[in-house]
Nucleic acid binder design. Structure first.
Lengths: 118, 118
DNA sequence: AGCACTGCGTTCATCGAGTGAACGGATGGT
DNA sequence: ACCATCCGTTCACTCGATGAACGCAGTGCT
């Protein structure tokens, strides 16, 4: 399951640096190698990135994960989508925080009331 | 594993209404019955709540999950702890949002640049 | 009394996302 | 030739979460 979160994050990292290995991506993203491998395959399947496995100047094997034009386009879309989701989260979080603040205040009053009774 | 999140949420719900059944708690919390059962057991084990299984006025069985004094105290502490964690999350989220906004702007410029070249 | 039904807590087989050790292949160094 | 290293790939395993199924207790109807 390729979530918007990793769809966005992987595309961003690869847009900035297509030479990242799967292990580097995993470290960067804080997820396992297996999951990175899965996400990359998914992104390749839907045509967002293309793997160029060429030999570099020193005839050394080099994997490069390049964003396709579709991938570049999708990155922009998914970024906006991801931002919007974060904004929603933000709103929810603010409400939660407000409720928690209220509750802490109420608890303080309760405790004070109990202290007065003792 | 009893996380602070559910430690807080269950204590809050039960403080407000000790008569909630496990199924009602599950619905309220948006989690499964099994998980609620596990959380309650954990809270009972560490002495935060006590289950009163008495017969009510009509001799009908009734489960009541009451907060112990320790539970009331813990609820206050865990609420503050939970609030602090939410505040941290909030800060992280704001930074993420700012970064995403920046990125959307950059992408717009890039796209415009490409459009100009076409 | 008998029976069906409801609601309770409890259990546990099942699921699936996530993990990372292990593998084969390619390359570089000695 | 040999070993070390880094690559992507695989897959057995873990573990939190799930909810169907169970036994039990009380209710209501016949």
């Amino acid at each position: 399951m390729l979530t918007d979160e990793y769809r966005y994050k992987v595309l961003k990292l690869l847009a900035d640096n297509p030479c990242l290995s799967q292990r580097e991506l995993a470290r960067e993203l804080g997820i396992s190698l297996g999951k990175v491998n899965y996400c990359l395959k998914a992104l390749i399947d839907i045509g967002m990135i293309k793997v160029n496995n060429f030999k570099n100047s020193h005839n050394k094997q080099a994997y490069v994960y390049l964003l396709t034009p579709k991938g570049i386009e999708d990155k922009a879309k998914v970024t906006v989508r991801f931002l919007n989701r974060k904004l929603e989260e933000h709103q929810v979080l603010q409400q939660e925080i407000e409720a928690l603040r209220q509750e802490v205040i109420e608890e303080e009053h309760t405790t004070q009331g109990e202290k007065l009774l003792q």
